[in-house]
Each structure stands twice: as C-alpha cells, then as structure tokens.
C-alpha cells in the first residue's frame, strides 16, 4: 500500500454531517464564552466595590474617634479595594487578544506571554493581594479592639489562611501556567528545529558541490 492509497482512504473517511443548526450553535457558544469572560472580569470589580461602603464606614468612624491605627488601616484597605481590580484590568489590557489566524510561532508566543503574566501575578500574590489585605484587617481589628487574646487568635487564623492562599496560588502558577509555558516552548522548538534542519540540508547540498 502506498502513501497515495493512504491519502485516498484518509480523505474518504466518513464525516459527521453538519447539523442544520451549526451556525446558530456556534453563535450561542461564542456568546456563552463572551459572557463567561465578562463575568470573570466583572466579579472582582463588583465584589471590591461592594466592600467599599463598609471600609469607608470604618475609616469615617475611626477619623471621628481619632483611632489612628484604624484610620490608617482602613485607608490602606480602601486603596487596596481599588488597586486590585485596576491591576487585574491592566494585566488584561496589556496583553493583546490572541488571534488564532496568526502563524503558529506568533500565536504561541502570545499565548506564552499571557501564561507568564498569569504565573507572575499568582507568584507575587502575597505582595499585591494578601499582605495589604492582611495588614489592613489586622490594623482595623487591633485599632478597634486592642490586642486581646481573642484578637490574637483571630489574627493567627487569618495569617494561616493567608499562607494557605499564597501556597495554593504558587502551586497553581507552577502546575498550571508554568507547565503550559514549558509545553509552548516545546512546540516552538519543534518549529525552530524544522527550519534549522532545512538549512542544514541546504548547506550540506551546497558543500557537495564545492570542488
């Protein structure tokens, strides 16, 4: 059996007929994808904005009561509630939308940049997400209630949760996004190897012709 025979057999493989609703199914799926992205993008902002009145209330009360620790901590939390959605929004805007119509090398490079950006965000989560939140909560709690036994236990629990969140994020960065980066690099290597092999074959033919 020749390669041509295999080609013919391959192209004669039975194919599932397209349903009459194929275009409508695609449009519905595309809309669901868009809604998922909007939901993901919007949730963080909505949650943050929902907490702003509460934290603003703490700040307001602390200013009237002249509790500087609660004031400073509530102010930190308020800034944090605006910073987190802004940072996430900025990260999304800095990366161009990937176009699957691009040649694979360029498409993969953009995917890689997106994965690296995600990985870095998760690896640095303690600095821009956990620490400001934890410091703010600790400051407000101690400022309002003093350093009682109950407050110390509460803060210890919060600290343990923060360490857990940090570990989980770093794990996700390593096993999810960094892993995908490595796979993208492997596929890019395949492409680079193909071109290099062609150049090597071309130059060895050239060498055979030299006197």
């Amino acid at each position: 059996m020749s390669w041509k025979d295999l080609q013919d057999q391959w192209q004669r493989t039975a194919v599932t007929p397209l349903p009459a609703s194929a275009v409508q199914d695609t449009l519905r799926r595309a809309q669901r994808l868009r809604r998922r992205i909007l939901w993901r993008d919007g949730t963080e902002t909505v949650v943050a904005l929902a907490l702003v009145p509460t934290v603003f209330g703490w700040l307001h009360d602390a200013m009237h009561a002249h509790i500087w620790l609660t004031e400073a901590s509530a102010a930190l939390l308020l800034v944090w509630l605006f910073y987190v959605p802004w940072r996430l929004w900025r990260a999304r805007r800095l990366l161009p939308r990937n176009d699957p119509g691009l040649p694979p090398q360029r498409y993969l490079e953009r995917e890689k940049q997106a994965m690296l950006a995600q990985a870095r965000m998760l690896e640095q989560v303690v600095w821009w997400y956990i620490a400001p939140c934890m410091l703010g909560i600790a400051g407000v709690t101690v400022g309002n209630h003093g350093l009682t036994r109950g407050v110390v236990i509460y803060l210890a629990v919060v600290l343990v949760l923060c360490v857990l969140i940090e570990r989980l994020n770093k794990r996700a960065a390593k096993h999810n996004f960094r892993r995908r980066v490595a796979e993208i690099d492997a596929t890019c290597s395949e492409l680079a190897t193909l071109e290099a092999a062609q150049e090597a074959a071309h130059s060895s033919k050239g060498n055979h012709h030299e006197p």
């Binding site: 295999l6 080609q7 192209q11 040649p103 492409l191 193909l194 071109e195 062609q198 071309h202």
Partner: peptide, 25 residues
C-alpha cells in the same frame, strides 16, 4: 495536511515555515 492533499506551499503558509523545511521534514 499532506493527507488532506494540501500543497507544500499551503502547508508552509499554515505553519509559517519555508517550503523547503516542510519538504525535508
């Protein structure tokens, strides 16, 4: 792509490679 009877040039165009590289591989 070869099984689908695409030409070397079409395959090279899809992959963003040279026709020569496609042919060798």
């Amino acid at each position: 792509m070869d099984l689908e009877d695409m030409t070397r040039e079409q395959i090279a165009d899809v992959l963003g490679l040279s026709s020569g590289a496609v042919a060798v591989r």
